[in-house]
Design a protein around this nucleic acid. Sequence first.
DNA 1: GCAGTTCATATAGCGTTGCTATAGGTGCTA
DNA 2: TAGCACCTATAGCAACGCTATATGAACTGC
Lengths: 242, 242
Amino acid sequence: MSINGQLPPKARLLRAAAELLANSGGSAVSTRQITQLAGVTAPTLYHHFGDKEGLFDAVVAAGFDEYVAGERDFAPSGQPLEDIRRMWDNHVQFGLKQPELYLVMFGNIRPENRPAIVADAEALMEEMLNKAAVSGQLNVPPKEAARSILAANVGMTLMLIAEKVPERNLELSAMTRDAMIFAVSTEQARDNGSVDSGKSSVVVAAIALNAALQASHSDQLSSSELKLFLEWLHRISNSSTS
Amino acid sequence: MSINGQLPPKARLLRAAAELLANSGGSAVSTRQITQLAGVTAPTLYHHFGDKEGLFDAVVAAGFDEYVAGERDFAPSGQPLEDIRRMWDNHVQFGLKQPELYLVMFGNIRPENRPAIVADAEALMEEMLNKAAVSGQLNVPPKEAARSILAANVGMTLMLIAEKVPERNLELSAMTRDAMIFAVSTEQARDNGSVDSGKSSVVVAAIALNAALQASHSDQLSSSELKLFLEWLHRISNSSTS
DNA sequence: GCAGTTCATATAGCGTTGCTATAGGTGCTA
DNA sequence: TAGCACCTATAGCAACGCTATATGAACTGC
């Protein structure tokens, strides 16, 4: 009935919570189930994790490590937008492989309360998008691009999780993925000669320069000068969302 | 302490539940709170609604009527894709105006368990997309298009709800919206002359014909012939998602 | 007009939930 | 060996969703 091994109670609680969560089938998991499976009593849980949410946060943190490992596993291909494409698919696969954990991580939404893990995932994607911005492939500031892509990525993953397995259509994910990446990229400006379909080149250049400056830690400008300069660039690159 | 008026207990329960939900600030709402505010005792709730979820389903149904009213309020502009654009914005506005209700409706995701309301919202969008398909504006079968667009729409709305009010950026929603609509439309094929960027014209034609046939209830074919014919068309229009 | 039936609400309480006040045991340092 | 953190257990509280049972009210058939 209890998780064996000579692990300390804290680790046993984590393991029991993760296991029950994975097999809960979507229904709630009680602290009593967890403590019983871990072979400890209630106060032990609260001593180590504060409350139930604290325990779940710890489980989520472990899950996030796994998530990040998946997102970083492949070598950067040198084509940042291709890497974003792979990040999207990894995200979806993670959600479909461990739906209950995913729902705790990304499906537990409350008004005006952003879980830390969402910000982390966004930072991960923004980091990758920064590389695209440096090479002038981005039509939109990396932060905004990351936010939009991740929102669509989460939305699509949640929809797939809610669907019964045989009806899950991964092509919808692929289509949405490409649509989002295409929307934030400068690709559209290259495909056709039309002027107003993409951003003006000064905006693209500003976005690229901004990303490059932040990455290089250039010391050609004093820190206060750099700060002001970045602020201007930021204003330019945000100014004209038609 | 209790909701006044001479409404019957059932209506008072509905009203109390909706009010508590709207002011809950994201925290849970208990049946005891609801029955107390409605001025009835527990069994009354279970007599009328079966269980707590039944009551919430009823609240959601009322909320959905309001949602549909918003989605249908404007006259069809004759440009279906423009109407889809407005549906998207209406959806986001509905979510931001009543975040708690929205979360009960669209944020309560469990594995392999699709709430009826999601299917309803999808049908609403599919219906509109059908008009676009009839006039050959759709690159993708209406059902798949509706699914993808709604997934992104929900994802974006959930992200906006989770963000603090001053940080909510509706331009991200607009960008994502246009990206999704652009992705399912044949617009891209018209803008540039390239061949492989859009679907082949036979696929587009099949999609349009399929939608037109289903809409017109044509009796030129027997029902069994029609069924087979539709199946072929369906196969064609789904076959080549590059 | 009265018995029978159905509908609607109340009294009281069951089992479970998240959580805690308090105390006891264990191992380390002085 | 005394003292002190640290960790865990006993026991139980308040709140939760829900229900077995009973009572009142309204309608129906004779």
